[in-house]
Design a protein around this nucleic acid. Structure first.
Lengths: 226, 226
DNA sequence: CTGTCAGAATGATCGACATCAAGAATCGAA
DNA sequence: TTCGATTCTTGATGTCGATCATTCTGACAG
């Protein structure tokens, strides 16, 4: 399955950059390319987990599914991000589901391949530990956000965060507004109203999935008052 | 600092049970016993992290502190549990604070000691990865609980969970009701009212920190309706 | 015993966000 | 272009849990 480019691709994933060439070659060799169309599930809650994923292109959402079908988006995966490692180590079924929200290509790395690599290279283990720690920190921030911040604060926080990582003064929403709303733990209606309010009071301009933020300071101030 | 018993104690912590005797001995030797009185802080948000902790006896709460002082309890640490590992791997300041809610004794394991042990023993690394993954799963369940469940459901869930791990039909609250309320993301008032309601409708009996649950099925049913 | 103080319970009120219900806009396929 | 289906917006109404305020309880020091 793997093309020569798999090797090069993995080399640029933070998790694997420190690996020796041979190790990388073996990982690349055993990795499986999987294509998913928009809307297809990669796995569902309860499925057994046999490895980890790295997203090459496209977009994947990770969500929890409650009884009576309500779903809550936990994370939106962008290219080069990995996911599913934690479940692999636990050797338990997935507690979440993953679905492609665009046509996507992922690399699937079988558990035993990765475990072998871990035994050989303590640096990889260290990176993996750091990676999971990072994930933990992110999730902790989410808990903080959900429990301590209001709807407006959550949206403002998201926008400022996106601005920061993109550099410019425009945010391009990575998914449709429903999905993003769920990620921010809002209903689509509330999300819409918050954007409306920020347009009036903080001068942002919403055009479809593109949001321009002429004055990020003004936006930032919305967090504190009201 | 370490007494001979430190070695024996560490041996029974899941994380370290698989370690070789010599390794364990070195960890025990370098571990530092620290005593904290009720109310004392182990560390605050922003403090540098130089190692991980294992609680020997007492009780410790981990909490996030928002601006204007509001605090939200993330976790209540029981004896034999470890905490602070994730931050150690990230080499960033603590994103949370830790405070003794009872007189407590902890073992502090310096980062370099642990890193050395990790390099030597890939099984320890694997256990550590599993440990962090477990933590991640727990936190994910919390997110699920906070975002998808009502106040009554959260309290019922907590009680049933406690019953399950203790075996009997009595739950002894590990901390005062304010703190537990915060852990469940409730105000003390709401928590009190929910317990009141469960007394009337599910037959539980609340006496201080002791809660008797004569019929756990009846309690369980409260989750679904209303 | 008495005063004090933290913890807990109870009552009254309020507000943020969800829900329900239509419309409006956007997109994609024929 | 046109039609249909999503996706998004907007409005009216409802509700869960927070907040504010008071009372009650029990533990403990003096």
């Amino acid at each position: 399955m793997p093309t020569p480019s798999t090797h090069a691709f993995l080399k640029h994933i933070p998790l694997f950059t420190a690996c020796h060439e041979e190790e990388l070659a073996r990982l690349a060799e055993r990795a499986v390319e999987q294509r998913y169309e928009k809307g297809q599930m990669l796995f569902q809650r309860g499925d057994p987990c046999q490895g980890m994923y790295v997203l090459v292109y496209g977009r994947v959402k990770i969500a929890i599914v409650a009884r009576q079908g309500a779903e809550k988006v936990i994370e939106i995966i962008h290219p080069s991000q990995s996911f599913g490692e934690a479940v692999m180590f636990l050797e338990q079924p997935y507690p979440v589901m993953a679905q492609a929200v665009e046509d996507s290509l992922v690399l699937f790395i079988p558990a035993d391949t990765l475990f072998a690599a871990l035994d050989e290279d303590s640096r990889l283990a260290r990176r993996m530990l750091a990676g999971l720690s990072m994930r933990l920190r992110t999730l902790l921030r989410d808990v903080e956000t959900y429990t301590l911040e209001s709807a407006v604060e959550r949206v403002v926080g998201y926008l400022l965060n996106s601005l920061e990582s993109s550099g410019g003064n425009v945010v391009n929403l990575p998914v449709n507004k429903q999905t993003l709303a769920s990620r921010l733990n809002l209903t689509p209606e509330t999300f819409s109203r918050v954007l409306q309010k920020l347009s009036e009071q903080a001068g942002i301009v919403v055009e479809g999935r593109e949001i321009r933020v002429p004055d990020s300071n003004k936006l930032s101030e919305m967090r504190n008052l009201a």
